[in-house]
Amino acid sequence: MQEILLIFFGAVFFNNFVLNRFLGICPFLGVSKRIETSLGMGMAVAFVMTLASIITWVLQGLVLNKLGLEYLQTITFILVIAALVQFVEMFLQKVSPTLHKALGVFLPLITTNCAILGIALLNIDFGYNLLQTIVHALGAALGFTLALILLAGIREKLEINDVPDAFAGIPIALISAGILALAFSGFVL
């Protein structure tokens, strides 16, 4: 039990995917202008991350390891994630149009999100079992959402402030993100 909790909180805070491992920086800057959209993106990532983790874990155990094809890990996982995102999008469109409307625009963005590939590869690297894999994915997704919402909150405040022209937009967001990452590194010490 303790180990599960450690994996979970470790993924949320200490090894935060965005601020510590620097994965998924594109959506981190792209959709962190409004808290609302960043929340939607976070939910979509949580959804896909957990599903992708489970499927890639099973695939690794049942196919790649059995056939001695560990070196095909990366390309296989990319294939899985791309197909999975497409499938989830179609599935949501049919089953829950409301959810599709909320998450729909973010789903294609996740197809090539390195955070998803990162978690799938890390799960295998760390030798997690299925339960640990799921917990790790959930924690990482929560950490991703947390980082996104924190930056969105800062950027919403920045919008009404008088930022020098040269820093307006992405530069000031990058500086804020850097300071945020610095603050998160405090968890490790």
Partner: peptide, 16 residues
């Protein structure tokens, strides 16, 4: 590996 990757790709394509 070729057969495995092809099989996986065909499988996913089929599902989609």
């Amino acid at each position: 590996p070729i057969v495995t990757m092809t099989a996986l790709a065909v499988l996913f394509a089929g599902i989609l």
